[in-house]
Amino acid sequence: MKLRFLSIFAAAAMLAACESGTTDTGAKGAAGQMTPPSSSASSIAAGSIEEFNSVVGDRVFFDYNKANVRADGKATLDKQVAWLKKYPAYAITVEGHCDERGTREYNLALGERRAHAVAEYLKAAGIPAGRVKTISYGKERPAVVGSNEDAWAKNRRGVTVLSK
């Protein structure tokens, strides 16, 4: 179920990326599994963390050794902002992560830079600064195991983690 929601979002992100003329390796793999939006949401409570994670999309992806939020990421963050404004009770921790193709200490700094970029975007869009914290995990907590471009693209990420 969760996978399907993710792929819906990935397809949307892919379209956004195409419009702005960039490529999005993070979403490419999932784009083929597009599922009609009508099959979504019935079992997910509105305003739940599950909804945020799987319908809105909790993460954005970065290019190798870069920390600027890409066009596809901005589309995701705009959706996050709209949702977070609607549900102001959640505290937000932005996690910054890197792929495994860098050194440990440098990647801690790079992950922090990515988390900061996401946090700044959220704040600039009107999320109160006091609601947003950052943490870097460098290359220590990959989302996907695998030593290939596809896995690395999915691991270079900023994840918006909610708590009450």
Partner: peptide, 26 residues
Amino acid sequence: PGMTFAPRFSPDGNKVIFSMSEEGNS
């Protein structure tokens, strides 16, 4: 206030040198 990382002692053991992250920089 920010993440501190990459520590090392000075040769005389009296200091620790390390990085701190602030505003996305380290």
